[in-house]
Amino acid sequence: MQLGTRWTAGEQPPKAVPEALHAQIAAVENALTPDGLSAPAPRWTLTWLEGRPVAELDTGVIVTQDPSGEVVVRYDDDDEFA
């Protein structure tokens, strides 16, 4: 059993986050645009799906590994199932 974890964007990812995801997580964070309203930074949630890590940012960006091990960045589009 693997437990997930949460952390704030801009912080060092916890040890539970596989090193393979770190570069893409950093790239996503570098692309974040501050809103100028002093809103808190979004938070990441790490979960595991079929043994693969899934890091999801509160904004809907998802960084995961596909079955071949390639790191994939996508946006959670709720309209996808409409």
Rank of each mutant, 00 (worst) to 15 (best):
Q2K: 14
L3T: 12
L3M: 08
T5D: 15
R6Q: 13
T8L: 03
T8S: 07
T8F: 07
A9M: 04
G10Y: 04
G10R: 08
E11D: 14
E11T: 14
Q12S: 14
Q12W: 01
Q12R: 10
P13N: 07
P13W: 09
P13T: 10
P14T: 11
P14L: 12
P14S: 09
K15Q: 12
K15W: 06
A16N: 08
P18V: 07
P18N: 12
P18E: 11
E19V: 14
A20D: 13
A20P: 07
A20N: 11
L21E: 04
A23C: 02
A23H: 05
I25M: 09
I25Y: 10
I25K: 01
A27C: 03
A27L: 13
E29M: 03
N30Q: 14
N30R: 12
N30Y: 00
A31N: 10
L32N: 01
P34N: 00
S38V: 01
S38P: 00
S38Y: 05
A39W: 01
A39P: 00
P40W: 00
P40H: 00
A41G: 01
P42I: 02
P42G: 02
R43C: 02
R43N: 06
R43Y: 02
R43W: 02
W44Y: 02
T45M: 03
T47R: 15
T47N: 07
T47V: 04
W48P: 02
W48Q: 05
W48Y: 12
E50I: 07
E50Y: 02
R52V: 02
R52K: 13
R52L: 14
R52E: 04
P53Y: 00
A55N: 02
A55M: 08
E56W: 00
L57V: 11
G60K: 04
V61C: 08
V61I: 15
V61Y: 05
V61L: 05
I62Q: 12
I62R: 15
V63A: 09
V63E: 06
V63F: 06
T64M: 13
P67W: 09
P67Y: 10
P67C: 04
P67I: 14
P67H: 11
P67Q: 13
S68N: 06
G69K: 06
V71G: 08
V72E: 10
V73G: 04
R74T: 13
R74L: 06
R74C: 03
R74M: 07
R74W: 12
Y75A: 14
D77E: 14
D79L: 12
D79N: 11
F81L: 12
A82S: 10
A82G: 08
A82N: 13
